[in-house]
């Protein structure tokens, strides 16, 4: 504590870290020799939606994937710095990445249901992780959470590939929710969807907020403004600004942020 000259600031900081689930401290991410994320630090608060915005190629997906160690599967990807989750560095030696992914779920940009039944799509994750409750209940609960139950309750044992794109994406959300993750990471989950499906998923995120922490990458400014509580603006691998969403969209501290969110982006 002594390094904080101002005690109220120290207190604030402590308060903040209690409320944050994930703390990024000087995170650098490389692909072989190219650096894709430069020295990014911010906290992800519990039961809030954090949006990551920024121009294409600025490192949003890269940063998001580092939060549940999905970068492990990318050839040449390397993460430096600290990502603190439950008092542990996600990249610490004793940490099992499988356990990390079990607790920090992910929904991808392109819907990626397993080529199996709707039911099995949902139940597989929990089952391999030792779930021994009723799978029927689990499937129903997850599908209801993802606002898909009414549409599919009569064909749970049909292939998930017969669903529409929007339904598939909601299925993927339901599948992630079935694991009851502490954090849900979403990489442009609505980019392949029509406005109606998008609106449904946004509503859904709002409801999920009470029990989950959500980090969402989006290209859609209105979406970020509508649904998120905090926003991180990135550019060319740098975190330009991180703040409460309202601030970012009304009184950003940086000129670049303002230019980007108002669409006057060069």
């Amino acid at each position: 504590m002594s390094q904080f000259p101002d005690s109220t600031l120290a207190e604030q900081n402590l308060q903040m870290s209690k409320k944050s689930v994930l703390e990024l401290r000087n995170v650098n991410i490389f692909y072989s020799d190219n650096q894709a994320v430069n020295d990014v630090s911010f906290n992800i608060r519990r039961n809030k939606i954090t949006a990551i915005i920024g121009p294409s190629g600025c490192g949003k997906s890269t940063l998001l994937r580092s939060l549940n160690r999905m970068n492990d599967f990318v050839d040449g990807a390397r993460v430096e710095g600290e990502l603190i989750f439950s008092n542990e560095n996600l990249y610490g030696k004793e940490v099992d990445p499988v356990e990390v992914r079990r607790r920090i779920g992910m929904v991808f940009q392109k819907p990626n249901p397993f080529p199996k039944s709707i039911y099995n799509n949902i139940s597989w994750g929990p089952l391999i992780n030792g779930y021994n409750g009723s799978t029927d209940e689990l499937v129903e609960r997850s599908l209801k959470q993802a606002a898909l139950w009414e549409e599919v309750k009569d064909r749970l044992h049909e292939s998930a590939l017969n669903l529409s794109g929007g339904q598939q994406q909601r299925l993927c959300i339901a599948r992630a929710l079935a694991m009851e993750p502490e954090v849900l990471l979403m990489d442009e989950p609505c980019s392949a969807l029509d406005p109606i499906s998008t609106a449904r998923i946004e509503d859904l995120l709002f409801e999920l907020k009470s029990s989950y922490t959500i980090v969402i990458v989006t290209h859609n400014m209105q979406q970020a403004a509508r649904i998120s509580d905090y926003t991180a603006f990135m550019e060319m691998g740098d975190l330009i600004e991180f703040n409460v969403t309202k601030k970012i969209f009304t009184r950003p501290a940086m000129k670049r942020t303002e230019e980007y969110v108002t669409g006057r982006f060069g």
Binding site: M70, V98, G105, M106, K110, N112, W124, G125, I128, M179
Partner: peptide, 22 residues
Amino acid sequence: PQGIRNAAYSLGATKWQTTWAH
């Protein structure tokens, strides 16, 4: 598709579980 593997991994599956089941 890589998406299938990613889906399995993101649910906390090991490499072997992903390979065997999907």
